[in-house]
Design a protein around this nucleic acid. Sequence first.
DNA 1: GCCGTTTTCGGCCCGACTGTTTTCAGTCG
Length: 578
Amino acid sequence: MARLNDEVGALLQEYSDLLLLTGGDAYRARSYEKAARSVGGHPEDLARLDAEGLQAIPGVGRSTAEKITEYLGTGRVAAVDALRAKVPPGVREIMAIPTVGPKKAALVHRELGVSTVDELLDAARAGRLDDLPGLGARTAENIVHGIEVLRQGGGRVLISTALALAEEIAAAVREASGCERCTWAGSLRRMRETVGDVDVLAAADDSAPLTAALTGHPLTAEVLGSGTTKTSVRTTRGLQVDLRVVPAEDWGAGLVYFTGSKAHNVKLRARAVRAGLKLSEYGLFEADGGRKLASRTEEDVYEALGLPWIPPTLREDRGEIEDALNGELGQPVTEQDVRGDLHTHTDLTDGLAPLEEMLAAAHRRRWSYVAVTDHAPNLAMQRMTDAKMLAQREQLQALQGSFGRMRLLHGTELNIDPDGGVDWPPEFLAGFDLCVASIHSAFTLDRAAQTRRLVRACENPYVHVIGHPTTRLLGRRAPIDADFDEVFAAAARTGTVLEVNASPERLDLGDELIIAAHRHGVRFAVNTDAHATVHLDNLRFGVATAQRGRLAAEEVVNTWPLQKLRRFLKADLKRAPG
DNA sequence: GCCGTTTTCGGCCCGACTGTTTTCAGTCG
């Protein structure tokens, strides 16, 4: 649904970047940036809007609407093309390096002719940046470090990006003649936090029409190789897609094989070998006679190996096979278990949708409760005030009952300052149903300071949830350095909930830290941190991450009924005496 | 370029931090 909107949003963002790189008016650039965000978070498909409808989107005026219309009609925007011709694409990539913005990117391009990240790295290491006005040795160091952070992503893309691509390709393959089934496998099906390439699996007797659907797809930029069972292409956005076609009767075996992980499969095959069997993408066979024992469904394959079906999100060889054998796999939390969201924003701060729209979208998800948690005043750019917050509370109270039986909770997202303190005095904090507290500044404090800061936030009796605890941004910002074992111990001791932030660019906590925190007996909340109604759909990424962290519904407080949740929020453990 | 209980011009998200400066520019949330 939102894919076209995201595409247009990306284009407007690019135009904004290009305006800044070419020394255009900063306010004009900001207009396009604002429009980009607004379009990306707009719930209606742009293709269904006329000029008037487009201009009704906040931040979209006549000029932006014309550009969108031009793009929808021709697939291009002349103004964007004109600027692209002036700025090599690598220069815009330079802007993505932390600590490098449009000014520095333009400077190195103009003065040194640097037009790729690699060239900038060379220049920084060779000391050639030191001669530029306003740049020194320290800047060069930061740039080198920034490039390292950027490269740790290793060309992988966000799960949301990969999923949108996979859905589109799979839909096209399903339309091909003779296609019986088609879905995606690989790390995308396991819902790893980032994806290196997309594996699409299809079932058909004749692969040719399916292959043609992929190689002829508008998203395909280059065919890397094509045979009867496997075809690989590079898409227009750089991501590789592998299509595998198996006979319908081997669907289950193929799905197990291509879902992985490699380590999970190795263990499955070893188990097969010990039982005198052989497991491949074509099925489970007797090792000697070659008779096929199972291949039609995943359940068949696992069952023939003496195992229950294991959810894809668990297939990482982290003990899931042993647990399955011992009957200790448990029931991972599912999207259906979630009864509400405890971290959402409205246009009172940096959200895009007004309160009523966010609540209506939450209600459509049939939630039992939702907490509205706009930013607190210490994040100065949000211009929060006591009066605004209290007015929102009144508005929320007035709306109570307007969305069926969905309970509206009033919360806030506090800012954890470098010492571990938060916005507002206790008497004001006491007025909220729920407080999320997050780090939004001072990301570079040393380990001891970050640890102390988070522990103190946990010890604050008014802080119920620590939001996006590591503050990482996948591929863009490293997690803060803290002794998370100590933080988890503090969270468990104080009854502070740790967030599994479902935003695909965060997924924070990630699966491994969830497992570590779980050992301490911590409770979790899977929250969307939605800044637009469409972001509520990100819940699935958070739930998948929780599954990968081996969480059951019971350990996730927003699967609890309202009464239980409210008792928990008011527990003496978290409240100061009196 | 967008927008209007400041309404067709003149503002626009504010403040901290960092590294380079000697009073400030760039970046970030």
